[in-house]
């Protein structure tokens, strides 16, 4: 059975086990929707008071926000196993169990768990996108749709890579992983807004170090048909999500290194 079909089996098994507690799954989904929706509440309140922000109107900001939300929700859905890797696999020794099976550890971690509740964030972001489409009278041409899918794909790759890197750190320490987790969420938070709002050091960070801007800010500008007020060339904007895949490739190299470190020290 090939890897994709096996993931399908894992997926079905994960759904079945969560559906043993349907009320809990529903509550967690609603909870996730509510706790992610509050950020848009604060953005709305600020626009309500200040009108506009450095040339951005609310609908546009909601576009950036929604794309980060959709990408992050998918990544969180696919890489839950990496997210809990330190606490549920390294600390407990359960990682040995994965290594004792004739499949790659990364594949098994992807298959470990698919949390239904992540759809809470996805729905929330989708609603924001729908409302923003209305506000801007935006027309979804086939070209815009294709670009949107490409943007989300790059975003899923990038956010997945962040969870993989977090898991790689767990090979060295299982303490303070919450901090790394918080940095991931902090990145998401920063990436939701147009980066032209930020100071230079944070922009540099979001473009060149953890290229969140490449999977949200730049391609969404292309979708909206706007030029970058910071002066990035127009031809670059739609290509930017590629950075997400490059980042994922690098993080998987780091993962391999971590696994080989684990099998040579056993801890």
């Amino acid at each position: 059975m090939n890897a994709l079909a096996l993931l399908g089996r894992y997926f079905a098994a994960s759904m079945r086990s969560q559906m043993q507690y349907p009320a809990s799954a529903l509550m967690l989904t609603v909870g996730q929707l509510a706790s992610t929706a509050i950020e848009i509440v604060s953005i709305w309140a600020l626009f309500d008071r200040f009108g506009a922000i450095k040339g951005w109107e609310l609908g546009e900001v909601m576009f950036f926000y929604a794309f980060v939300g959709v990408s992050f929700a998918f990544a969180d859905f696919l890489t839950r196993g990496f997210d809990v890797f330190g606490s549920d696999f390294v600390r407990t020794g359960a990682f040995d169990r994965l290594l004792l099976r004739p499949r790659s550890a990364a594949l098994q971690l992807v298959g470990h768990d698919f949390r239904i509740s992540r759809f809470g964030r996805f729905f929330q972001a989708a609603i924001v996108l729908a409302v923003a489409t209305q506000m801007l009278h935006f027309v979804w041409t086939p070209q815009a749709i294709a670009l949107a899918l490409w943007t989300v794909a790059g975003g899923v790759a990038l956010f997945s890579a962040l969870f993989v890197l977090q898991a790689v750190l767990a090979f060295w320490t299982v303490e303070s992983l919450e901090a790394v987790n918080a940095l991931t969420y902090g990145g998401v938070y920063a990436g939701q807004l147009p980066i032209s709002l930020y100071a230079r050091w944070l922009r540099t960070f979001l473009i060149f170090i953890v290229p969140l801007a490449c999977v949200a800010y730049f391609p969404v500008l292309a979708i909206l048909g706007r030029s970058d007020p910071l002066g990035a060339p127009d031809e670059f904007l739609p290509v930017a999500p590629l950075a997400g895949f490059i980042f994922l490739g690098l993080s998987l190299l780091a993962w391999r290194f971590g696994v080989s470190k684990y099998t040579s020290t056993g801890s």
Binding site: G55, A179, A182, G186, Y198
Partner: peptide, 23 residues
């Protein structure tokens, strides 16, 4: 760990607020 997180979130918050106020 909590401290670093707070610095990060705090810095982003401050920049967003500044953008609105100054704009």
């Amino acid at each position: 760990a909590g401290f670093f997180t707070q610095c990060w979130f705090g810095a982003v918050h401050v920049m967003v607020l500044a953008a609105f106020y100054l704009g």
